[in-house]
Amino acid sequence: MAEIKLTTPLTEEKVRELEVGDKVLLSGTIYTGRDAAHERLVNLLEEGEDLPIDVDGQVIYYVGPAPAKPGKPIGSAGPTTSYRMDPYTPALLNEGLRGMIGKGSRSQEVKDVMEEEGAVYFAAVGGAAALIAKCIKKAEVVAYEDLGTEAIRKLEIEDLPLIVVNDAANNDLYEIGAEEYSEV
């Protein structure tokens, strides 16, 4: 199991080198988005409109952070469960989205499109939200401010600890990991 330092934006080539189980420390700029923001982004794509953010080569973190205390860039900010974004994800992958950060299993459709387009899905430790917030150095709302915690934020992150759960070769660590330790 390798430990890899990566900085965004990600290239297809870099992403295809990643394997399930790799531990990654991610730095650079990423964007946040949850259910409501995803719905709006995909509605825009369906209407042939431009997105408020360019997702090409980018990573979206599925998070709705807690409010920032005075003097802090962000409040606690752990991942939310990813399957709720599955209906919207293929459209964004087709636009060049290279990575997603969340927790929990993805649909087979999402995994297949990830393989086709060359994308990676990372897990952050769900519930380790106070710890993760310490890796976020800056946060700025860049779209859909009316959605509150669900607005799209641009985050500057430093060494965010992640695990590759779905690589671009259609491997799934949730299946592999549980199988390895299953006694039934």
């Binding site: 807690a66 409040g75 606690s76 939200a129 106070a130």
Partner: peptide, 23 residues
């Protein structure tokens, strides 16, 4: 992961921040 969760609980208690963003 369990080490991260223990560290997270400690930060939350000491800094008086929520242990999880989903409060």
């Amino acid at each position: 992961i369990l080490e991260q969760l223990l560290e997270n609980a400690k930060i939350a208690r000491e800094d008086r921040v929520p242990m999880c963003q989903d409060t």
